[in-house]
Design a protein around this nucleic acid. Structure first.
Length: 851
RNA sequence: GCCCGAGUGGCGGAAUGGUAGACGCAGCGGAUUCAAAAUCCGCCGCCGCAAGGCUUGUCGGUUCGAGUCCGACCUCGGGUACCA
């Protein structure tokens, strides 16, 4: 063997894998299958360390499962529609399609050298007409199945650019390009009826036992099932048709604490009142700013008294004012509430601002009624003393109070208990070009007419321009103007395209038959689904994963997926980000200037540029181009090789946490791989008949390593698996055992390293007489007999502080352990004759002497 | 605002309620070398001469025993329905 040179060995083994078709997924009824999938990337043009980490994790799992005898599916594709392509076209010219496919080629070229065990024959991009045509076919099936409908909904409207903005394009209530004040405007849009599945999507979370608890919790809260009371106020002085005002509350026990009613600015009653210029002005004021919940809920709470009154259901002589308030959301409940300022913080702030009364309903069980300085909002499980209760006991929990209030309303006939969900239907319309066209035609005579399946895909026209804002499809007569598929009269295509979340809601299913003429093929979906291990960022915990869960159900309903695939991801792992510290100087005008890591010479105390200028070192944050705290995987691979990059991103941090990229860490990883190489070289030169010492110990250490690494990888504790590989390398480096034992140990090490450093592993495997490819060798098994120790070291605590340790046989009875502990010199010294009150012996663990 | 996380040496981190700091990085000492790099060996939480004491974001609680469980708070991160 020679020097460790990744630039030579890595391409060599990648070629060998390609030629042997090692990673081609094959339907093999004789073997169990395993489908591992990493969230596919957006083709921004460059891979970054986050990608390297994400795909290496999936690759480690895929390689271990393959070695364990599974038929593995490990595909890759591109989430290729989306705004950045259009932004690039507007800013730099060019076409979104060319930009996107160019980026895909670049990124693929950067990914190939990583040596990932991907079946590239299954690759596709969501912007391939072959893919989105099948998506259009499913859309039509779902439309027919009643899973798609149209309704009006709010969008961010930029009045200068005359275009719809995404939430991220609204900055401080202004359009990012025009700087104009954004307003909320209603538009008729397409929706998926995800709300049909609210209950099921919530209940089924319990079955997702291999998902992180936090993700299930987030989804449960997002779906937001609540039990409450719905009732109608009788109105006084309202316009015609509004003699009732429906409200919904989850706290009907606070009904006697009501001090006002409030409706959303988007409520039909508010619209009916807009003839009043004051109301119109107020509603316009409320509509300033974007549509995001964050913006709406953090805005200052303002209201307008409509002059209308409602009668309290428990006392018709008691009238409450009806306000329009900007913090009432039309999408939730009925878009109208009664305000109970004593027990809701938002209502409290509102009442305080407008001088409305704040009558308390309950106090803590032991407390007296007192003037409130903030809303008193106890947990519903807490016992309370009701001072203005009307149902149930005087002292009861909030839950009991709510149940009693609902029962009261139902028996007196003024309201009904209802279950509501926070989850809203999924708006899929986008007024943009670079997305999957919605395959319908608008006909003056026939209305909305589905395109004929035979005419799919409805392809995006290439000849479009991005010189003005808005959707180029709207301005493209030859594409837009078509005959009605039903009556043949002149009609217009729908110019909205689909939300890119639709594209990513079924790609996992498409990978099972990526080039079929139907969205899926039953035999393939049956064999490969579900995804056994899905890996991606926590930022997708709610939307992407929830939409995918819905879409799988919708695909099942329309016959595109088997029943077993309605929960498409059997196990989920969410990984952390790759971070790096940030280097900053300031220019002559005091503005910040950021510097790339390779421009900075880092020392313990700080850093300097190459010309000696001191730079400010800012703690690590997610790698981003604007902060220039990025490390290019290409450079790392050129310098150290792919195995080093793979080893490092898997080694340091637990995979669910962020990992900080440090140059010294990468160098350390590289040094270790060099040590392993040298070790392999040394063992290779040992005479075959060398008889050494400690054969048993090395065999035991080898078994220990197999066990630790296997469990580490299977438990997604890659950093711990790697720590045990370091420990094993240290042991093997110091060992002087007989040649066959040494060879066995280094071959095992190669196999255990193979998932992380596949190229190095192949080379060692080949040099040490392994047969075939290391990637295809069966995963090693540890002899259980070698894993047990017969003596254990037990710490002895006195009052919970460690004072001594004793070494005992593994199965020594507790009484004997106790005696041994008390006879120990250090124990006697620390006890200093004090009487022993109690001794706790935890077998194999610890002894605690209490005095 | 609301929902969900995370916080342990100089740094990344390890630890079924049972010896806090495995393993790695950096640092320090030594060997090798004309010298350096590379490599190898050893030391390495903080205070203290030592005995010993202190130590897992902060404060409190449960327990024989808490990084781990419970409560309150602080800081940072993710999501918040048109970023992907």
């Amino acid at each position: 063997m020679s020097r460790y040179d990744p630039s030579v060995i890595e391409p060599r083994w990648q070629k060998a894998w390609d030629e042997a078709q090692v990673f081609a997924a094959r339907r093999d009824p004789a073997r169990p299958k395993y489908y591992v999938l990493e969230m596919f990337p957006y083709p921004s043009g460059r891979i970054h360390m986050g990608h390297v980490r994400n795909y290496t994790m999936g690759d480690v799992v895929a390689r271990v499962k393959a070695a364990q005898g599974y038929s593995v599916l490990h595909p890759m594709g591109w989430d290729a529609f989306g705004m950045p392509a259009e932004n690039a076209a507007m800013e730099r010219g060019g076409h979104p399609k060319d930009w996107t496919y160019g980026n895909i080629a670049d990124m693929k070229a950067q990914m190939r050298p990583l040596g990932l065990s991907i079946d590239w024959s299954r690759e596709f991009a969501t912007c391939d007409p072959e893919y989105y045509g099948q998506q259009q076919a499913m859309f039509l099936d779902m439309l027919e199945a009643g899973l798609v409908y149209r309704k009006a909904a709010m969008v961010n409207w930029d009045p200068v650019d005359m275009t719809v903005l995404a939430n991220e394009q609204v900055i401080d209530g202004k359009g990012w390009r025009s700087g104009a004040e954004v307003e909320r405007r209603e538009l008729v849009q397409w929706f998926f009826k995800i709300s049909d599945y609210s209950e099921e999507l919530l209940e089924a979370l319990d079955g997702l036992t291999h998902w992180p608890e936090k993700v299930r919790l987030m989804q449960a809260n997002w779906i937001g099932r609540s039990r409450g009371l719905q009732f109608a106020f009788d109105t006084v002085g309202a316009p015609e048709g509004f003699d009732k005002l429906e409200v919904y509350t989850t706290r009907p026990d606070t009904l006697l604490g009501a001090s006002f009613a409030a409706i959303s600015p988007d409520h039909p009653l508010a619209k009916a009142l807009e003839a009043d210029p004051e109301v119109a002005a107020f509603v316009a004021e409320c509509r300033r700013g974007g549509t995001s919940a964050e913006e709406i809920e953090t805005a200052e709470k303002i209201g307008h008294d409509t002059g209308i009154r409602v009668k309290h259901p428990l006392d018709p002589t008691w009238e409450l004012p009806v306000w329009i308030a900007n913090f009432i959301l039309m999408d939730y409940g009925t878009g109208a509430i009664f305000g109970c300022p004593a027990h809701d913080q938002r209502d409290f702030e509102f009442a305080t601002r407008y001088g409305l009364p704040i009558p308390p309903v309950f106090v803590a069980e032991e407390a007296d009624e007192a003037r409130l300085t903030e809303a008193f909002v106890p947990m519903k499980s807490e016992k309370l003393r009701y001072v203005r209760g009307f149902a149930g006991e005087g002292v009861q929990t909030g839950d009991e109070g709510v149940a009693a209030a609902i029962a009261h309303a139902e028996s007196h006939g003024y309201g009904a208990g209802v279950t509501k969900f926070r989850l809203r239907d999924w708006g899929l319309s986008r007024q943009r070009y670079w997305g999957c066209p919605i395959p319908v035609v608008h006909c003056a005579a026939c209305g909305v007419v589905p395109e004929k399946k035979a005419n799919l895909p409805v392809e995006l026209p290439y000849d479009v321009a991005f010189d003005k804002p808005g959707n180029p499809l709207d301005r493209h007569p030859t594409w837009r103007d078509v005959p009605c598929p039903s009556c043949g009269a002149p009609a217009k295509r729908e110019t909205d395209t689909m939300d890119t979340f639709v594209d990513s809601s079924w790609y996992y299913a498409r990978f099972t038959s990526p080039h079929a003429a139907t969205p899926t093929v039953a035999e393939d979906a049956d064999y490969w689904m579900n995804v056994d291990q899905y890996i991606g960022g926590i930022e997708h915990a709610i939307l992407h994963l929830l939409y995918s869960r819905f879409f799988a159900r919708a695909m099942h309903k329309t016959g595109h997926l088997p029943a077993k695939a309605v929960e498409p991801f059997s196990a989920l792992f969410t990984q952390g980000m790759v971070t790096h510290e940030i280097y900053r100087t300031t220019d002559a005008k005091g503005r910040p200037v950021f510097h790339l890591p390779e421009e900075v010479i880092r020392s313990d105390s700080g850093g300097t540029l190459k010309d000696g200028t001191a730079v400010e070192v800012i703690p690590s944050a997610k790698m981003s181009k604007s902060k220039k705290n990025v490390v290019d995987p290409k450079d790392i691979i050129a310098q150290f090789g792919a195995d080093t990059a793979r080893w490092f991103v898997m080694s340091d941090s637990p995979p669910e946490r962020d990992v900080e990229w440090t140059a010294s860490g990468a160098e350390g990883a590289h040094k270790h791989l060099n040590r392993v190489w040298t070790l392999c070289d040394r063992i290779g030169q040992m005479p075959a008949d060398h008889r050494g010492e400690g054969d048993d110990d090395l065999a035991r250490a080898t078994a220990r390593a197999i066990d630790d690494v296997t469990r580490g990888i299977e438990g997604f504790a890659f950093n711990k698996a790697i720590a045990s590989l370091y420990a094993f390398a240290n042991t093997l480096g110091k060992a002087n055992a007989s040649t066959p034992v040494m060879k066995q140990a280094i071959r095992t090490m190669a196999q255990l390293m193979q998932p992380m450093t596949p190229h190095l592993a192949e080379d060692i495997w080949a040099h040490q007489g392994g047969s075939g490819l290391c990637a295809q060798a069966p995963w090693p098994k540890a002899d259980p007999a070698l894993l047990v120790d017969d003596t254990v070291t037990l710490p002895v605590q006195i009052n919970g502080k460690r004072r001594a340790e004793i070494s005992v046989a593994k199965d020594m009875p507790a009484a004997e352990v106790e005696k041994l502990a008390l006879a120990n010199e250090d124990v006697i010294k620390f006890l200093a004759g004090q009487p022993v009150r109690k001794i706790i012996v935890v077998p194999g663990r610890i002894i605690n002497v209490v005095v």
